[in-house]
Design a protein around this nucleic acid. Structure first.
Lengths: 199, 199
DNA sequence: GTCTATATGGCGATAGAC
DNA sequence: GTCTATCGCCATATAGAC
């Protein structure tokens, strides 16, 4: 651990905010996690709001930019969707708290989200256009790609954000069984989407 | 408004908690909403936690029991799924904040959920068994019904909990356009599930 | 039962010594 | 830069008059 104090604070804040959200997190908790005094957090970031925004921006943009490469790669739209599903599941499994974190905060304060979308280079409209164009030119389903994307995201994200409930009622709170269930969903969702887009 | 004071508090708490959650809600806010003094809330419910638990239990059980009748009605499993989708969409549209509310709280404090499942008469296992049995006896897909249910719920709930984000990036923040999008999903999801379960 | 006033504690933020 | 001590505020909760 030869990282700077500022980096240590940042990493600690990332972990705590991800687990508890802006409202649930405590500055004292972040200081403990970083192994230092609470006053240092204000010395480096001035306010909790500032610290949170820095963390949120980082998590949000990293999560979204990860799928960009797939979307604009040189394969067919159908293949893109399949690769996208694979990559997205891997991404969520590696960051299981991110979806809940983002959903919480976009509902708590949508303004943060709006400024963020302008600042970062994320252009969801371009992704839509790409799908529209490819759908016109190929034998792909003429279904509005927004419905396809929302369906995929919903099917993938829901079992993570509703995990405590689903794991309890369907798997007797068996953690391993639920992880296995999540793994099965890779193929399930891929097959569903394939059936859907084969017009 | 000839309801009792306790009922007024309860209704006000229901509205505020639903919008802001346990952590976001303020007792003063609930008192204002109920049109009375803050001290009365403690007189009738002793603590915020108590008041919240009463509200959560009510919202949770009502929301879940609404679909029970469909599930155990005298029609085929395939028809049940279709009717279930219809009823569930109507239920969410009439209570658009409930899914986010429940997801928030089951992640914040899963213990509340556990005691609740025991106390209430909700038996998700029976619903599963029913689907398992019907799947064996008919030409229904042999797919694990848990995957079907999670897929349906995800596709239906996600556009509500991620609304601020999706409405902004896909519909230029046009509220009417997004409502129309939500209406379209009724048929979309039904068709997807039909394709899926036709083995 | 319903109100006003106040106690109590926790949290974000700052002052100031080192 | 990093710490201790403390301020100021706000939220839950209670005491006590009416």
């Amino acid at each position: 651990m030869d990282s700077t104090t500022e980096e240590k604070i940042y990493e600690a804040a990332r972990r705590i905010f991800l687990l508890k959200g802006m409202e649930g997190a405590r500055m004292q908790e972040i200081a403990d996690e970083a192994g230092m005094n609470k006053a240092l957090l204000h010395y480096y970031f001035r306010s909790k709001e500032n610290l949170f925004k820095a963390v949120f921006k980082d998590i949000f943009t990293k999560f979204f930019s990860k799928v960009k490469d797939t979307i604009f790669s040189d394969i067919s739209a159908k293949e893109k969707l399949i690769v996208f599903i694979d990559n997205y599941i891997n991404l969520i499994q590696a960051n299981p708290y991110v979806p809940q974190f983002i959903i919480n905060e976009i509902n708590r304060d949508p303004k943060v989200l709006k400024t963020l979308m302008f600042e970062s280079g994320i252009e969801p409209q371009k992704i839509l256009e790409m799908f529209f164009n490819e759908a016109q030119a190929s034998n792909l389903s003429k279904l509005d790609p927004r419905h396809i994307i929302v369906s995929i995201l919903g099917m993938l994200i829901f079992p993570f954000v509703a995990r405590p409930l689903l794991q309890m009622i369907y798997f007797n709170d068996n953690q391993e069984a639920y992880t296995e269930f999540l793994n099965e969903r890779k193929e399930i969702v891929k097959n569903m989407i394939l059936k859907l887009i084969e017009a």
